[in-house]
Each structure stands twice: as structure tokens, then as C-alpha cells.
Design a protein around this nucleic acid. Structure first.
Lengths: 244, 244
DNA sequence: CGCCTGTTTGAGAAGACTCAAAACGGGTGG
DNA sequence: CCACCCGTTTTGAGTCTTCTCAAACAGGCG
């Protein structure tokens, strides 16, 4: 992680030229460490920075009512996060570290300069934002239209797909640093029901559990049943303007 | 609607200069009419255009399973839609006209050129996309964490807020061109339950119904109860680069 | 006038929730 | 090394919201 992790991420989709790399390197300077559970940005607090995740695993959430919480999205190394605060002077979501993390702050103004200096990257960021948007629609659809077992399977498949991008290989199991309460908050379920649903998935042989380690046993059928689509591995870049 | 409706929309947030207006005018040429119910773009079909809504009311949706459908978002005059197809060569959502509509196609490549020529507008589009994303998180939160009556009230408040932007004044009632099935598909409920919930809201004096016309009677308390926040009226523009 | 779509009503079933308590596990201090 | 503690997972029992299935009703249109 010596070099820019945003560069690495964008480089997956596009061959970056020297000028683009230089601009990105300028932006991604300085870093900040977070322990698991710490919050980086709080809903409705003033905010003039975004962040790039360099290491670790985070999530964004909002609270609902006095007690409730909805987890909106999980973020991994290379993600540009806090974008919910772009459109306003305050943050619309809370950013929390799931595991220990390292992030780089990016002042909104720097983003503005990036848009001016590197239109091709601006377009790519726009495309990635669109892809994340679609990933969130997927979540919306599963919460709105699927029962608990399918919602949960889909989320596990989503996490697996996203970890594979970073892991760089085909893995079929991973450590899940989330509590069942977290899972419930992401899926619109209570922790009790998450627990029973996990057991059901285990009983019917879809997944295996050992401690916090999850193994996806029957990935093919889970994908078929839940209609999961990986939104991260490919992003279209053909429409982007030429690099400057 | 002689002039560009995207220009009008963006102009709400930003004072556009001559060069920006000219670029936008170039993009927004040609138009296409749709009758209520017609689909403009179909999920998983190839797509190389976005669209600007000039008149009417549309929605984007995805199907889930054999029968189900989730409505993700409603779109009104001035919105740039079909952005779910930016990140891939095919569309991720279906666009359907709710009422009779007029739209202008915008080839993705034109968007690329726009990003290059007018970085300030590119930034603004990015900010608007972020705002829409947050609006969708709001929906996600209500479906995941609220009961039927609150979900429905929140959606009605959302529609009201959005129509006010176009109506330009304070209105408290509107014609709802959606069937109860549509409402259910947007809220993750069945049409039967939508019906009973509407009646409940009417009975307790929150809303009034006459035909397809909805009147929001007790807006203040509905906002308080549901925690609704208007995400459309303000968008931060201070971080944008200078216009070119 | 009949037809089709959308709304309304009824009754029973199912999924998910609440409340409450017990079991587990990893970490800390005695 | 053991006892204790706290957060998390698991189990149980009863309740509530929402769904399903089915049929009746209403309204606009050819």
C-alpha cells in the first residue's frame, strides 16, 4: 500500500497515463488510522472531506428513529467514501470502521481540481458512483422483495465478490468481522432473526460457519436462487473523454 | 420547455455562464415522446444513451424473481436518467413512463465530451448523483426499518417535495398517477396492504383522498414521525472548480 | 352494455418481531 | 491459572405485521 490505493483501484478499469498518476498521487497524501468500531464521519455533522480507504473494512449507515440503524454499504480498500457529503455541507451518513483501518482524507476542493485537471478520471469516478448506486439498488430490491434467507445469502455473495477483487484470486471463505446485529442492520432484520436464518442456511448446506469464518458451500445455487449480479468487476470506460 | 430542461435544473443550483449554456444546448437536442406505461429502456438490454426528462413523470425499476418488481426511483422534468447504464454496456434498470412524457436522448459519448469541456458541470452532475444516492438510501432505510404506514407517508412527502421544485410554489395536494401496485412495488409491500395502509392514513387524518388526488393534511406531524428530509432543494456547489 | 383494470373487503397463514433468559467465548485482573 | 465480566450468539414462547388467496366492487372506455 505504499502507492496510492485509489490509483490501484482506478487502474483496474483504465490504463492511467503519467499525468493522471501524478495528479492522483498528489491527492492521496497523508493518512489516518482508525480502530475497529471508530467512526470517521458522523451523520449531520459538518464535513468538507471525502476519504479513500487504504486498508481495512468500513461501512456507512444512517440512524432511523430513536434506536434503529440502517447500514447502507460496505467499503473496502480503494473505495472513495463519504461521497454522501458531496452534495451538502454536512454528512448524510455515518462512516464507521468495521476492522482496523487506514484512510486518506481528500478535501472536496481537491476533488474539484481533479475534475478540472483530469476529465477522464472524473468520468470514471462518475461511472463508479453509478455502479455503487446500482449495487445499492440491488440491496433495496432484496430488502423490499425477498425473504430473510435470500437477503442474507445475497449479502454474503456480495461481500465475497468484493473481497475477491482485492484478494485477487478465487476464494470461497472469509472472516466476517460483522456481528449479527450488523448483519441485521444491513438487511432490515433483527439480530434474532439473522441468527435463525444463518442456522437455516447452514442446515440446508448452503454455507458453513466456524467461529467468524464463513464458507460459501453452494455458490452456484445461491447465485441462481438470489439472482445475484457482481457489479464491481467490470465498469464501462468506452464513453470517457480522452486523457489530458 | 423550448429551452433545455437540464439547463433549467442545473441553473437552480448554479449560475451557468454563456459557454456552459451553449454546451448544454448542444447536448439537449432532439426529443422523443412516450405514452404513459411505455418503457424507454429495458433492464439488461444494450444501451448507449442516457435521457433527460423534459416533461412528465417516469420511474426506474428492476425485476426480482419471476414476478416481483422493485421501483427504485421516480424521475421528473430536468432529471438526467438512465445513469444506471453508465457503468456498463447494458442497462441495469428499466425506465418506464408513469404519465405521458417527452425525453431527450443523450449519447454516453456526449456526456464524455461534456465532462471534458465543462468540468464545473461535471462536478455538479456528480453532486446531483450523490444526492440521488442519498435519496435512495432514505428509501432503503424506510423499507428496512419502518412499518408500512411510515414508509407510505414518507414516499408521499418525497413526491410532494419533488413536485414543489417543479411547481415552484407551496402545494399541499397532487394527482398521483400511480396504481396501488406501483406504490407497493416502490415500498416493498403488496397492493392489498398498500390499500389498507392508505385507508388507515386517511382514517387518522394524515391524508385525504379524492379519486387519484392526494392531499397531505398533517404535513408537520408526518415529517416529524417519519424523519423525512428533503434532499433535492439544496446542493452544495462551493467545491466545484471554476467554470471554463 | 360488457370488459378490463384497479380498488376494496374478508379470512386464514406465514414470516419476522419482541421479550426474556441462557449459553458461549475471549479478555482481564486477582 | 482461575474467576469473572462483557459482548455476542443461541434458544424459547408468544405476538404482530404483512402476505396469500379469493372474491366483490367501481369506474372508464369501446
Amino acid at each position: 500500500m505504499q502507492s496510492s490505493s485509489l490509483t490501484a483501484r482506478l487502474g483496474q478499469y483504465l490504463e492511467l497515463n503519467e499525468s493522471e498518476r501524478r495528479t492522483l498521487a498528489q491527492i492521496e497524501r497523508g493518512e489516518q488510522s482508525l480502530r475497529a468500531g471508530e467512526t470517521l464521519m458522523a451523520e449531520s455533522r459538518k464535513s468538507d472531506s471525502l476519504y479513500i480507504v487504504r486498508q481495512g473494512w468500513m461501512h456507512s449507515s444512517v440512524r432511523s428513529g430513536r434506536d434503529g440503524r440502517q447500514i447502507l454499504m460496505f467499503h473496502y480498500a480503494g473505495d472513495l467514501i463519504g461521497t454522501s457529503s458531496i452534495a451538502w455541507a454536512w454528512a448524510a451518513t455515518t462512516l464507521t470502521a468495521v476492522s482496523d483501518c487506514v484512510v486518506t482524507p481528500v478535501p472536496k476542493v481537491s476533488l474539484g481540481l481533479l475534475f478540472k485537471a483530469q476529465p477522464r478520471i472524473a468520468g470514471l469516478l462518475y461511472a463508479i458512483a453509478a455502479a455503487e448506486n446500482v449495487a445499492m439498488s440491488d440491496r433495496l430490491t432484496s430488502i423490499g422483495r425477498m425473504e430473510a434467507a435470500d437477503r442474507l445469502s445475497r449479502l454474503l455473495l456480495d461481500i465475497l465478490a468484493r473481497l475477491r477483487v482485492t484478494a485477487g484470486g478465487i476464494i470461497d471463505s472469509f472472516d466476517l468481522p460483522l456481528t449479527q446485529t450488523d448483519l441485521g442492520d444491513a438487511l432490515g432484520l433483527t439480530k434474532v432473526h439473522v441468527n435463525r436464518t444463518l442456522q437455516a442456511l447452514e442446515r440446508n448446506g448452503s454455507i458453513g460457519r466456524t467461529g467468524r469464518r464463513i464458507r460459501i458451500i453452494d455458490e452456484v445455487s445461491l447465485i441462481a436462487v438470489t439472482g445475484f449480479i457482481d457489479r464491481y468487476s467490470v465498469v464501462a470506460t468506452d464513453w470517457l473523454p480522452a486523457a489530458s
